[in-house]
Computed example of a mutant assay.
Amino acid sequence: MKKVSNILDRKGSSVMTIDASTTVLDALRLMDDMNIGSVVVTDEGKYVGLLTERDYARKVILRGKSSLETSVREIMSTDLPPIIPENSVETCMHIMSENNIRYLPVFKNDQLCGIISINDLVTETILTHEETIEQLRSYIQS
């Protein structure tokens, strides 16, 4: 059974961070430059939340706020369920599905050690299926 640690080993555990006082527009520019859909929000270097494209769409655009005047602190997601590297891919899929979310923060010893997305889980599942298929081919051919 594949675990979150397998995903982090494959993709790395580095995360892009911004300060909670950053304007939404600057955060969006960073996300666009890095081609990412979320960014970790920190306050005095500590994890306080996650800003996602969905946060922007639902909490800025739909509420008529200004991206130039709104800080990330005002719209970030702070209630994401934390997971640990030992959690299984299946557990994470259930958590994301039940909570209708696309990102999960990963913590080890109460320190953020990565972010996983629904795309990471799908990729890991596909790789697992490909490994199984290859093992079955080898078994049949031997």
Rank of each mutant, 00 (worst) to 15 (best):
K2W: 12
K2T: 14
N6E: 11
N6H: 15
L8P: 02
R10C: 14
S14W: 09
M16E: 12
D19P: 00
S21Q: 12
T23M: 01
T23E: 01
V24L: 03
L25T: 13
D26R: 13
L30I: 13
L30A: 11
M31V: 11
M31L: 09
M31R: 08
M34D: 15
M34K: 15
M34V: 11
M34T: 10
V39N: 11
V39S: 09
V40G: 07
V40K: 08
D43Q: 08
D43C: 06
D43A: 07
D43W: 02
E44M: 05
K46S: 09
Y47H: 02
Y47S: 04
L50G: 09
L51V: 07
R54C: 07
A57H: 01
A57G: 06
R58H: 15
R58E: 15
R63S: 00
K65P: 03
K65D: 04
S66C: 05
S67R: 08
L68H: 15
L68Y: 15
L68N: 15
E69I: 04
T70S: 10
V72F: 03
V72K: 05
R73E: 10
E74N: 05
I75T: 05
I75W: 03
L80H: 02
L80N: 03
P81Y: 05
I83T: 03
I84G: 13
I84V: 11
P85K: 09
E86I: 11
N87K: 14
S88I: 02
V89G: 03
V89P: 01
T91Q: 13
M93Q: 06
M93W: 03
H94T: 08
H94F: 09
S97G: 09
N100K: 07
Y103F: 08
V106W: 01
Q111C: 01
L112I: 02
S117C: 02
L121S: 00
V122S: 04
T125F: 06
I126G: 00
L127M: 11
L127C: 12
E131L: 15
T132S: 13
T132Q: 14
L136R: 10
S138E: 12
S138W: 09
Y139T: 12
Y139A: 14
Y139S: 14
Y139P: 07
I140G: 10
S142E: 13
